[in-house]
Nucleic acid binder design. Structure first.
Lengths: 334, 334
DNA sequence: TTGTAAGCGTTATCAC
DNA sequence: GTGATAACGCTTACAA
């Protein structure tokens, strides 16, 4: 069933059918109803490829993320997808992994599908931030379609960044820890991404502003796996800390397990703060205080900006920040 | 840059360019190189819409899942997506939720994108199993494209089901529990899906085969939220159980929290088994024994079958089952 | 080995 | 209001 068949059956031209399909006002009510009836009867759906060819758009947004199995990322994808549906858009999902070449390949391949916009859902795409060249592939992509970067900051034409105020969050949390008597905060992370770096900066600034030393030995990069973190902490006897600020709940749970293994009391002997306020925070014992970065709001902003842009109504700001805040549970005492 | 431009620049016809693009053997090495060079130089990429229009395929697979935030579902989506990329396919993701109308709408809308095949990634699509009419929309979809159902069993032309042996898994686990001295196993679930029902059947069969009563009061339907489960268990003083068999790790963690609140020893006073062997299993204290259902293998089978079918090499079996097995940790003593 | 030309199913620009 | 008709950019017989 194509537009010709419908036209024939309804006794009109394909132009008229097209008008009906697209809700054009220039069709008499009578013909419209007639065409609609035929369409209904034969379950006609316009061919999206043909339409795409003509309009150069299939109303599809590309979402590139490092890994949907990551709870935080999954939350982003779910929110984005849901909001996009409201506007009649579909999403193509690409899980790129964390390696540079794979990320570049992901962007290249997804662009070939002629998506209307691209979302990079994860701080990993912004890179460490030092080498501008590292993010050139994103600027190239932006030459073709608008690019929305979540939790990263990349400067360039047609690139729009939305991120959480991670610096502020860790600054405030670390400060609160220090003011409640902790002086040896271990910063635990699994990444050199843009947001991980911001978190680190906030943590270090808090130390400095409170007259505490910033030590390399209070900064640990590790894999984001509960047992792995626990074992690393047990093995690294040189580390000396009375509290932990982790950039992900999984890491923080690793610290909880470490405390159990060493029979340390939480929070008395070890105060622990996680990040992302995920399901994990509430599974361990005691339950984790965790920084919530309002992923949903972040996604909402991205979609609002995107729709404004695609409708040519508004031009989004190049950067926008969303506040985080600490959700206190039982792993802290401040 | 379209095929005409490339043809002109390379001094050949568009047919030749098309041949080169599609790796047709009927092109001399010389022309091929020439065309390739021009394509390279101008970063030419064929227009997928035009190609789609001609071939009636854009090499896209539709994945409908209830919710990517669910860890199990996220695992499915990640595996499917990764495998599909290997074959040069893209995925359109649709999160449908668990409501019937939404699921039907999801399938309807995603079919309009003229996907090459549809994957229903989640037991919820198979329905409770009693009403055949409930899954009619899936049979309708199968009239258009091959449909692959994960963790469900739906009979129909062009529908291919792959599922875990949930019956066997709960039968064996419940049997082991009973044989180790537990006689009051609480079955904890959040769903009436196909696989939840299979799990229930396995559990009940084990009870029966060991001469134990099958009691309605040993079967609890609840929300899959840690604190919610804990509070329900605390409130339901009428429930009498010495062990828990849950259909998801989240539920099992709720039982762990309940045990803590009641100061029950795990596994001594309460033996707990979770399902899906997720990250959660390893976050709580003590860590959960959990049934692993090998989601990756399930996905691998789906993709293998799908590719065989799309290449018209093989016709998949209508049903295929993958074994599960229990991963023992510290919440059990058998 | 290469080129010509006919689809594929829309949308959009004209006339009428 | 409605109807021809030309794009849109590709694949693929069929000819040469």
């Amino acid at each position: 069933m194509n537009i010709y068949d419908i036209a024939k059956l309804a006794g009109v031209s394909i132009a008229t059918v097209s008008r009906v399909v697209n809700n054009s006002p220039n069709v008499s009510e009578r013909t419209k109803q007639r065409v609609l009836a035929v369409m209904e009867e034969h379950h006609y759906t316009p061919n999206v490829f043909a339409r795409g060819l003509g309009l150069d758009s299939m109303k599809t947004i590309g979402i590139v993320c490092p890994d949907v199995r990551d709870a935080y990322v999954a939350g982003l994808v779910a929110s984005l997808e849901g909001r996009l549906r409201e506007y009649g858009y579909d999403c193509i999902l690409y899980c790129s992994g964390y390696k540079k070449e794979k990320k570049e390949q992901a962007v290249e391949l997804i662009l070939q599908k002629r998506i209307d916009a691209l979302v990079l859902a994860g701080s990993t795409y912004a890179g460490g931030g030092l080498q501008k060249k590292e993010t050139d592939y994103i600027r190239q992509a932006a030459a073709q379609v608008p690019v929305f970067v979540m939790n990263g900051r990349i400067d360039g034409e047609n690139i729009y960044c939305v991120y959480s105020s991670d610096y502020q969050a860790t600054y405030e949390t670390a400060s609160a820890m220090i003011e409640s008597g902790r002086s040896k905060i271990l910063f635990l992370t699994d990444s050199h991404s843009y947001s991980a770096n911001k978190k680190l900066e906030g943590y270090e600034a808090a130390l400095r502003d409170h007259g505490l030393p910033v030590l390399g030995s209070r900064k640990l990069y590790t894999k984001n796996q509960v047992h792995y973190v626990r074992d690393i902490l047990l093995a690294r006897k040189d580390l000396d800390f009375d509290s932990v600020l982790a950039t992900d709940d999984g890491l923080a749970v690793g610290a909880v397990k470490y405390a159990h293994a060493r029979r340390l009391q939480i929070p008395k002997d070890l105060c622990i703060v996680g990040y992302n306020n995920s399901e994990l925070a509430v599974c361990c014992e005691p339950e984790l205080s965790s920084i919530d970065n309002f992923a949903q709001e972040l996604c909402g902003m991205v979609i609002d900006e995107m729709m404004g842009l695609l409708r040519e109504e508004t031009t989004p700001p190049a950067h926008k920040e969303v506040a985080c805040h600490l959700v206190k549970r039982c792993s802290t005492d401040f």
